[in-house]
């Protein structure tokens, strides 16, 4: 790692801290400034009718009766130690509740990302820059795939492959249980990445350096794989960090469709019961994952694009 890469890593980390602080602060103040009483949420939500004494006791226990700024101070201090407090509904530390579910969601999203990349690269290499029906069908399929919402695709995959064909379990654990949810997330992302990669591939095929390579006797397949694909992969790599974010959004849906454990399920439960410490905790962890993903994306980009590596001998001749 040289200077410029280190700088990028540092910038990403700074962005991460900023992201966490901004999100945390917004959520904190929203929670305390909008009408509604967290104590009620703790005591069973809107439908429950706790006594004033019980409410007061809970307020005192959770420190809601302290001045707002003091609460904000201890909230921030907690964040720095990854201490999000105790869940209102689970009566368990937020961190441990998340810790039990994170692995399952990560496995799902990373598998989906892999599927998306494989599908989009295959589709691009096969169809981009070619004329005729094959390329047009490929492009059409990508547009449709990108427009498929996970809640529908998941249900369709479930109905076809689990309910009708019995190829895969409806609700499963382990590798077989991962297949359908991962494709549910991977196919729309593949459509999206495929469109971006294909556009870039088409644009780069028209570049003079491709003509240069052909003039040296390179075959069509060689030009595609050795020169153009590398260029075409760059925007896709950049978008993969963002894509992981989209996958986490999608994981919320997929976990509900396939009744799968994970922080998505946990989040939906937390949102339904207005369990804000849990919501904030999950948000934080997702943001952290996201930051790490973007760091890895940056490193992958540098690996593919040597222009970012060269600080030595950069002086022009």
């Amino acid at each position: 790692m040289n200077g410029s890469v280190r700088l990028r890593v540092l910038r990403r980390l700074a962005e991460a801290v900023l992201l966490l602080l901004v999100v945390g602060t917004i959520v904190f103040f929203l929670e305390h400034l909008v009408p509604g009483d967290p104590a009620r949420a703790i005591l069973g939500g809107a439908s429950a009718h706790p006594s004033p004494q019980a409410l007061a006791a809970v307020r005192h226990e959770y420190g809601f009766d302290r001045p707002l700024l003091a609460q904000y101070g201890s909230f921030l201090a907690g964040l720095l130690r990854l201490d999000f407090g105790e869940s209102y509904t689970l009566k368990q530390s937020v961190l441990s509740a998340i810790g039990g579910q994170l692995g399952s969601t990560l496995a799902l999203t990373l598998t989906a990302l892999g599927i998306a990349w494989v599908l989009s690269v295959v589709s691009t290499l096969a169809g981009a820059g070619r004329n005729g029906w094959w390329a047009r069908i490929g492009a059409g399929v990508e547009v449709i795939a990108a427009a498929l919402p996970q809640f529908w695709l998941g249900v369709v995959l479930l109905l076809v492959f689990a309910v009708r064909l019995h190829w895969l379990p409806v609700i499963g654990t382990g590798a077989t249980g991962l297949v359908l949810p991962a494709f549910t997330l991977g196919i729309p992302l593949a459509g999206f990445l495929g469109q971006v990669t294909r556009d870039e591939f088409d644009a780069k095929l028209k570049q003079p350096f491709v003509l240069s390579a052909r003039a040296r006797g390179m075959s069509e397949a060689g030009v595609r794989a050795r020169h153009v694909l590398r260029h075409a992969a760059l925007p896709g790599i950049t978008l993969s960090g963002w894509g992981l974010g989209a996958l986490i959004s999608g994981a919320v849906i997929a976990e509900v469709v396939f009744a799968r454990q994970g922080i998505g399920q946990l989040l939906v439960t937390a949102v339904n019961s207005q369990d804000l410490p849990l919501v904030i905790g999950i948000t934080f962890v997702v943001a952290l994952v996201y930051v790490v993903a973007n760091l890895l994306t940056d490193l992958a980009y540098v690996a593919v694009d040597p222009r970012l590596r060269t600080t030595i001998g950069a002086s022009k001749a």
Binding site: L19, I248, S249, G250, L267, V271, V279
Partner: peptide, 19 residues
């Protein structure tokens, strides 16, 4: 910073806060 954040999660946070 907001763009970097998964959109559905942003929406979920708001629903968690506002009901």
């Amino acid at each position: 910073v907001l763009y970097a954040f998964p959109g559905l999660l942003l929406a979920l946070i708001l629903i968690a806060v506002f009901g």
